[in-house]
Design a protein around this nucleic acid. Structure first.
Length: 263
DNA sequence: TGATATGTTATCTT
DNA sequence: CAAGATAACATATC
């Protein structure tokens, strides 16, 4: 599922191709998938393609933006054929952008600059932002009694970390995912690890785990799944200590860890 | 057939 | 009131 590295991969590809093109036509094939005053975007030129947390934001000339959230099954594809799950089609000067979304949780919203600002104002720093400091992580961990993994996944506290990278970051830092956040002593290790696994994710173009449908804007799968530290590794030997990787449920989400070296 | 998968938000409970 | 827990969203797959 698209977390920050997957969204960032798509953003970079789109930014390279879309900037300078004009939107000729935008067509919605499902009422939930395209929201806001989308008719206004016709004729507008694309200034930049940016990202905040797991959202992609297409900056248009004038006072208009297209904000995109892929949620769990969204795909943004360049010059693909529309299919069964195609929800929005955007025709550009040279290319065509297809928004597929099997489960219809994702959306594209046309918003003005003021609305966009309001939207971003209440969001915490992304894990890759300079505002995400060691002290900031310490602050949010020590002020919560929830399991540390739930705090990493909390989009009101840190932007961009999803289930895959939260699992791997905790393994990297040797921190047990169920440990109460305020009892985590290896905060510095966790800080370095969460940034490290996210950057690895970006480097390998995101991940397409088993049963997932993530592809980048060119229709290619990610490569980080070959680098998973613990995600989907249950039953296998821990590379670090030889323990057996265990899978449990935490907050309703699949949670993978090595019980012998993640304390 | 029913359990399962994940990101986010709404809603309920403590 | 806030924090935390859980249901809901929609659908395909095993």
């Amino acid at each position: 599922m698209p977390e920050l590295p997957e969204v960032e991969t798509i953003r970079r590809q789109l930014n390279r191709v879309l900037v300078g093109q004009k939107i000729k036509k935008i067509e919605s094939l499902h009422p939930k998938s395209l929201q806001g005053s989308s008719l206004k975007v016709a004729g507008k030129k694309i200034v930049a393609v940016k990202r905040k947390a797991k959202m992609i934001w297409i900056d248009l000339e004038g006072d208009l933006n297209l904000l995109v959230h892929l949620k769990m099954t969204g795909q943004l594809l360049l010059n693909a054929q529309p299919g069964k799950h195609t929800r929005v089609v955007i025709e550009l000067t040279k290319d065509q952008l297809i928004f597929n979304d099997l489960r219809i949780f994702g959306w594209i919203k046309a918003v003005n600059n003021q609305e966009l600002k309001q939207y971003f104002k209440k969001l915490p720093p992304d894990v890759v932002d300079k505002e995400f400091t060691l002290n900031y992580l310490r602050k949010i961990l020590t002020s919560s009694g929830r399991a540390v993994k739930l705090v990493l996944l909390d989009q009101q506290k840190i932007g961009g970390v999803g289930n895959i990278y939260a699992n791997d970051a905790l393994y990297c830092a040797k921190v047990n995912p169920t440990l109460a956040a305020r009892k985590v002593s290896r905060i510095k290790e966790l800080y370095q690890c969460v940034k490290q696994v996210i950057n690895q994710g970006i480097k390998y173009g995101g991940s397409t785990a088993s049963d997932e449908n993530y592809v980048n804007a060119l229709g290619q799968k990610g490569k980080y799944q070959t680098k998973f530290l613990v995600y989907e590794q249950q039953g296998k030997k821990c590379q670090r200590c030889g323990g057996i990787i265990k899978k449990i449920k935490l907050g309703g989400r699949g949670t993978y860890f090595c019980p012998s070296c993640q304390k």
